[in-house]
Design a protein around this nucleic acid. Structure first.
Length: 890
DNA sequence: CGGATCGAC
DNA sequence: CTATGTCGATCCG
């Protein structure tokens, strides 16, 4: 069964249908509405032919509205839309507060960056984006000529993946449920998905592409990026016979033969082979060199230019698969992608590698066409009067004040026509998940078994790739289409059905409890595993397990209790796990908060980890020392279940311990506490430096604890210790590290536009920006924060001296103070608006030394100083969200 | 870290 | 009747 749940459904965002703004706004009085499509329909295609009527936008919208009105789905869409509207409102308020002064300053800053960007513009590459036209539909039409002249869509009554161009005239689009499509176009034929077939065709296409760029990057089944720079260089010297191709009519039906595009003949259909393929440079010869008799009649030779090469690619694709493709040729991926959209279907377009050509192309382009700018961003920008890319550029200063760093930087790149010039192979996978939609399920029993089934499938998939992850996420969508996710991170990686289910079950139980006595009424459930170990970490884990075992018998697991079978119903939470008060508290908190949106967010929790734990660490470290001195036995005692394991096979033992760990851990660590995290690190660390003086290790452990400690008080623990390289290394290597001064200019390598912007350039900038900034302009706390040991710093918030060896711990202290202070401050004052806009940032050590640069990114709009009223609304919001959670699933 | 959102296919 | 599935990234708390 699991193999049926195949991969992706091909839906391009540009081709999706959406409820347009005006549709939304007019929902209350639909009758007099004249909602024009907005983004709803973007046909712009061939005019109707052959009596294919199609529908105009108005009609389409009306039908869609009628079909949608009142549905739970639509209700939810409206709700989401309202949220976006609120975001926009916030943004507009923010905009109001911006002074001319600030704007000018921002303008200067941004323009400095523009110069830099302009200087780094790279036009030397040739990137090609290939996009199969209406892929799934085209395949189905190819394989069933009956469908050729009809409007068809691929998918099901509940969801369409794509439609052919006939159907699009009726407003039938990807991501539209089939039943609505049927209303738009009663004659619509809906063909079920057949992924195996698409995959096979896709493979054929990819074989061709690989010849032009062995490292090409496929994006799903129907499109790909190629870097043909090298190919073109070589191609220049290619003899003609390497560019010569024969028209192949063998595997086409009689009917299709007429349509096959023979050079010089008339093209039959607007989106069958177009004559354009053979325009200009392409020569067609009546070949006489005599290869074969029948097929040699038509021979084409392609030139050496980029256009010619791409025509060749498209020609070969069509010859091989009888499917057409569109293509874009440009100096970077973003442009190439937008280019391929230009002459779709079955066309191609090139942006020549000149700055002016790029800017011309960009100029009037609607921002929505840009990959990475979706429905929401479009709407937000539209609220600012930005629709085209040149407007995006004009407003660059404003945008830098309103949006997060990552966002406005990418906007800037877009408006300059900059993008990634090389194709980075996608890194290791970060997560794996499976989810399913079904008709309402509300019996807990059923929900559990469904959950288990999902875990089973996921486990199979994980094992196929040999992956184990530490975080399990449960996703639920209730019958009102509200989605929520619940995650839990455990200490040791999970991968088997039982391990995953143990966690997922608990998460599910919590959710069921939270709405009790009402049933949880859901229409979708999903399970995801993430937090995979990197290769590095795998090694460490091996090592640490080893030393772990050596010490087996005596190790005191103060917090790890021999696990009960975690198959028991975890929601009961009845059994106390003796010793550690930790879990008692955890449990109490969990139950207390089971109705709370933000459980465990209390101060108490943070306070709880601290000195005590570090004592434990030293203790453990001591024991490890002792045991390492003693001999290693052949018989290990599993430190978790305390059973003797006679095997000398490390692998086997590891597996056993892993199982035991997973068994007992998932039961007790609902969420991993930071305490536990550092404990784990300690282990790795100990084994890592096993060849060194163990006492050093212990010191380091203590230091490490201080570094990861939660409150400023931890700094006391370590103030006396001398720190060595290792300390800094460990701290800085910690994946979950807090922000440091340099980070404030943190450029998160704008991945939102991942494929299209230039990662290389950005990372270089990163390196530059990470440099120290202690000597620059004066700030409220302009100390030199090189984090030397023995520093005594004055917290700019509470004005108390803080002894600290770690910049991080100091920053953390400041954060804590800020959090305490802000609340009061905000409820009282609101006059310092100009400065408040960066309260948080400016106080932050090392921050804001470069003028008023917006450093703290915020999704959508930038956070500003909260006025009294805003603060009130903030509270209201949090109450509100609490309430919605309570009502969720009701 | 956990949760919500956006965006892509 | 009937509104997907999977993944990565960002941002906030």
């Amino acid at each position: 069964m699991s193999h049926i749940r195949s991969t992706c459904t091909c839906i391009k965002s540009q081709e999706r249908y959406w409820y347009s703004e005006s549709t939304m706004d007019n929902v209350k009085n639909v009758d007099k509405s004249s909602y024009n499509g907005g983004a709803l329909l973007r046909m712009g295609l061939n005019d109707n032919k052959a009596g294919m009527q199609g529908l105009d936008k108005e009609k389409i919208n009306k039908i869609i509205m009628e079909a949608s009105k009142g549905s739970k789905f639509y209700e939810n869409e409206l709700k989401k839309d309202q949220q976006v509207n609120q975001r926009i409102e916030k943004m507009m308020q923010l905009k109001e507060k911006i002074t001319q002064q600030q704007l000018l300053k921002a303008q200067l800053q941004v323009d400095k960056l523009v110069l830099e960007l302009e200087r780094s513009r790279n036009l030397s590459c040739t990137i090609v984006h290939i996009d199969m036209d209406a892929f799934y539909a085209a395949v189905e039409m190819r394989d069933n000529p009956e469908l050729k002249e009809k409007p068809i869509a691929v998918g099901s009554m509940s969801m369409l993946s794509t439609s052919n161009y006939h159907a699009r005239r009726f407003g039938v689009r990807a991501a539209m449920p089939g039943f609505i499509a049927k209303k738009l176009c009663p004659h619509l034929t809906i063909v079920p998905l057949n992924f195996e077939k698409y995959r096979k065709v896709s493979k054929e296409v990819k074989e061709i592409l690989a010849e032009y760029d062995p490292h090409f990057m496929p994006m799903g089944l129907d499109e790909a990026y190629l870097n043909v720079t090298e190919h073109l260089e070589e191609r220049l010297n290619w003899p003609e016979d390497k560019r010569r191709y024969f028209l192949n009519t063998e595997n086409t039906t009689e009917k299709n033969k007429e349509d096959i595009n023979i050079p010089g003949t008339v093209n039959i259909d607007g989106y069958s082979s177009s004559p354009e393929l053979f325009e200009d440079g392409t020569s067609v010869m009546d070949d006489d060199s005599g290869q074969r008799d029948q097929s040699l009649k038509n021979v084409v030779v392609f030139g050496t230019s980029a256009e010619e090469a791409v025509k060749e690619i498209r020609f070969r694709i069509e010859q091989k698969t009888q499917l057409t493709a569109s293509a874009g040729i440009a100096p970077n991926t973003m442009l190439a992608k937008m280019c391929s959209d230009r002459n779709k279907p079955n066309g191609q377009c090139r942006i020549s590698p000149e700055r002016q050509a790029v800017l011309d192309f960009i100029k009037d382009l609607p921002i929505r066409k840009v990959p990475g700018i979706g429905k929401v961003t479009e709407k937000m920008l539209k609220a600012l009067g930005i629709v085209t890319c040149s407007e995006l550029y004009q407003q660059r200063a404003l945008l830098s004040l309103l949006f997060s760093e990552a966002s406005w930087r990418s906007f800037l790149d877009i408006s300059l026509g900059l993008g990634s010039t090389h194709l980075e192979k996608d890194g290791e996978r970060k997560s794996m998940s499976t989810e399913r939609t079904f008709s309402e399920i509300s019996k807990a029993e059923d929900q559990y078994s469904l959950c288990q089934e999902l875990c089973r499938e996921l486990a199979q998939d994980l094992q196929k790739e040999g992956l184990k992850g530490k975080t399990v996420t449960l996703k639920l969508k209730n019958v009102n289409f509200e989605v929520k996710t619940r995650a839990s991170t455990v200490l040791s990686s999970v991968s088997t059905e039982d391990e995953i289910f143990a966690v997922a079950k608990m998460l599910l139980g919590t959710e069921i409890d939270s709405v009790a006595p009402h049933p949880l009424r859901i229409r979708l459930m999903g399970v995801r595993v993430s937090g995979f170990l990197s290769e590095e970490e795998k090694k460490y884990q091996q090592k640490s397990i080893k030393s772990f075992l050596k010490s087996g018998k005596e190790l005191d697991f103060s917090r790890l209790q021999p696990g009960r079978s975690n198959q028991e119903n975890l929601t009961k939470n009845s059994e106390a796990s003796s010793r550690g008060s930790f879990f008692d508290k955890k449990r109490a908190a969990r139950q207390l908060n089971s109705n709370n949106l933000f459980p465990n967010e209390s101060v108490g929790k943070q306070h709880f980890h601290g000195v005590k734990s570090s004592a434990n660490f030293v203790e453990e470290a001591n024991k490890v020392t002792d045991l390492q001195k003693s001999n290693v036995c052949e018989i290990f005692t599993c430190p978790v279940c305390f059973e003797e394991q006679s095997s000398s096979n490390l692998e086997e033992i590891n597996r056993h311990v892993d199982e035991c760990l997973a068994g007992s851990l998932v039961e007790d660590t609902v969420e991993i506490s930071k305490n536990d995290l550092s404990r784990e690190n300690t282990f790795n660390f100990l084994s890592h430096c096993k060849n060194e003086n163990i006492d050093d290790c212990k010191e380091n452990v203590t230091d490490q604890l201080a570094g990861t400690g939660q409150s400023a008080s931890t700094s006391e623990n370590s103030s006396g210790n001398s720190r060595d390289k290792k300390f800094t290394q460990i701290v800085s290597e910690k994946p979950h590290r807090e922000k440091q001064p340099g980070d404030l200019i943190d450029i998160p390598r704008n991945a939102s536009i991942k494929q299209c912007l230039s990662p290389k350039r950005n990372s270089q900038e990163n390196a530059v920006q990470f440099g120290r900034m202690d000597h620059t302009e004066e700030t409220s706390s302009s100390c030199s924060f090189e984090a030397r040991e023995d520093s005594v710093l004055v917290c700019p918030v509470c004005n108390l001296e803080q002894k600290t060896t770690s910049l991080m711990s100091f920053n953390r202290h400041v954060d804590v103070c800020l959090n305490k202070g802000l609340i009061q401050e905000l409820t009282e004052k609101d006059d310092c608006s100009a400065k408040t806009s960066d309260t948080e940032n400016s106080i932050r050590v090392g921050g804001l030394s470069r003028g008023q640069k917006c450093t703290k990114p915020l999704q959508g709009t930038k956070r500003s100083g909260l006025t009294t009223s805003q603060s009130a609304s903030k509270k209201a919001k949090s109450i509100d969200s609490k309430r919605t959670i309570e009502m969720f699933f009701k």
